[in-house]
């Protein structure tokens, strides 16, 4: 019974944690720029403002459904991530299923933005899918390294097996670095923000979205932030024994990501893909080799 209740509450929890992480990130970026920065709840205010717009522009059914698919897929993905003491839906879907489901959100957004007919949106989608091709490769290799090491694909078992300080970050540093770069690319931070790139393609897939559609997309994005950080925490930072440690570890991931985010310019899309297929993939393969030779 409690399990089911937690299952219902998890998306809301994920949304608020994502909002907190985003707000923290904006504040931190502002402090690095030596600004005062927006309040911590600024993303929430943005979402409220967008959802309270009086009119909406629609470009067709798929255009309306795109953000819904994005949010729905994000919620589904959240449910396949275990929380401390709660297995969520992990008995029904393991790491491999999770990696598949993670893609649905971007696909939904691509379908929606594609109908708007704006060339910038089409370019943005093309870039998003190409970039996905880039970061999925090291991510899957890094994930499968853990599968080879533990002999299981269950995310909850990953968490329990790393209890104490047996974090994969310390035991398999190469794999952790590759996983970090791949997750970082999935977050779309600098230098991998070719997808949105306001100066080039005017926020890419979101170019025609405004008002309530954009509000839904921002909700989805907040959940995505939670997903990426939680995924890295579970795989490499040993999960957590209680919820606060879990959020604290996610915060650590966001802090490191923001430090990189503020100093880098932007890759061109082909450079980004080349980078992903070269360095993180090589590091991940090296990590896989070490695990394969060194055994468990």
């Amino acid at each position: 019974m409690v399990e089911k209740l937690v299952l219902i509450l998890t998306p809301i929890f994920a949304f608020f944690v994502g909002i907190f992480l985003e707000g923290f990130k904006r504040k931190m970026v502002a402090r690095i720029h030596r600004r005062y920065g927006p309040p911590l709840h600024q993303p929430l205010l943005d979402i409220i403002k967008l959802l309270s717009k009086k009119e909406n522009i629609s470009h067709g059914v798929m255009f309306d459904l795109g953000p819904v698919i994005f949010v729905g897929a994000s919620i589904l993905t959240v449910l396949f991530l275990p929380l401390p003491h709660f297995k969520q839906l992990t008995p029904y879907g393991d790491l491999i299923a999770f990696l598949y489901i993670m893609v649905i959100g971007s696909l939904g957004m691509a379908l929606g933005a594609g109908e708007s007919g704006n060339p910038n949106a089409s370019i943005g989608i093309a870039r998003a899918l190409t970039l996905m091709l880039g970061y999925e490769l090291p991510l899957i290799i890094a994930g499968n390294t853990l599968v080879v090491r533990y002999g299981t694909t269950d995310l909850y078992k990953f968490m329990t097996l790393q209890s104490g300080f047996n974090w994969n970050l310390f035991l398999l540093p190469l794999t952790a670095i590759a996983g970090f770069i791949a997750t970082y690319g999935a977050m779309g931070e600098h230098p991998f923000d070719t997808v949105v790139a306001p100066q080039e393609v005017a926020t890419g897939p979101m170019v025609e979205y405004g008002g309530k559609h954009l509000g839904l997309l921002m909700i989805g994005h907040a959940i995505q932030v939670y997903i990426e950080t939680a995924f890295f925490t579970i795989l490499f930072l040993g999960g957590a024994s209680n919820i606060f440690t879990f959020i604290l570890k996610q915060l650590g991931v966001i802090i490191v990501m923001t430090l990189f985010d503020t100093v880098f310019p932007r890759f061109r899309i082909e450079n980004a893909v080349r980078y992903f297929w070269r360095w993180p993939t090589l590091i991940a393969l090296l990590g896989l080799l070490i695990v394969y030779i060194g055994g468990k």
Partner: peptide, 14 residues
């Protein structure tokens, strides 16, 4: 200006 929540955006829809 971001401390008041004012930020530049690129498209008219947003």
């Amino acid at each position: 200006a971001e401390r008041f929540g004012i930020a530049p955006f690129v498209t008219s829809r947003q």
